[in-house]
Amino acid sequence: MMTIRKRKMSIDQYLEREFTPEARPTQKTVINWIKSGKLDGVKFVGKWYVYETLTEADLMVERVLRSA
């Protein structure tokens, strides 16, 4: 499937979405993952963000959920 675009999310959003509270790594760990290339992200205006890759299917699901 073809990648359509990337969307930035804060590290806090990423941690809440991807991990349970018991298994959640620290923000510093996520920053180190970004710096080492293990995770796609960027520092923008002094704040770190994780990129979420959206495919055509993801965008279609979002449209369907918004119209419901």
Rank of each mutant, 00 (worst) to 15 (best):
M1H: 08
M1L: 07
M2P: 09
T3P: 10
I4V: 14
K6C: 07
K6D: 12
R7Y: 04
K8G: 09
K8D: 13
S10P: 01
S10D: 05
S10A: 15
S10C: 08
I11R: 03
I11Q: 05
I11D: 06
D12N: 15
Q13S: 14
Q13A: 15
L15I: 05
L15K: 08
E16C: 12
R17Y: 03
R17P: 00
R17M: 06
F19C: 02
F19W: 08
F19H: 13
F19G: 05
T20R: 06
T20S: 15
P21G: 11
E22C: 03
A23N: 12
R24K: 12
P25R: 09
P25H: 10
T26N: 05
T26Q: 12
T26C: 05
Q27R: 13
Q27T: 06
K28M: 08
K28F: 15
K28H: 10
K28R: 15
K28C: 09
T29E: 08
V30I: 15
I31Q: 07
I31S: 03
I31P: 00
N32S: 07
W33L: 06
I34G: 03
I34Y: 02
G37E: 04
K38D: 09
K38I: 01
L39E: 04
L39F: 02
D40V: 13
D40R: 14
D40T: 11
G41M: 02
G41C: 04
V42W: 00
V42T: 15
V42Q: 13
K43E: 11
F44H: 15
F44S: 12
F44N: 14
G46P: 03
G46N: 09
V50K: 01
E52G: 04
T53S: 14
T55F: 13
E56W: 01
E56R: 05
A57K: 08
D58Q: 02
L59A: 09
M60T: 05
V61R: 10
E62H: 01
E62Y: 00
R63G: 04
L65K: 14
S67C: 06
S67H: 12
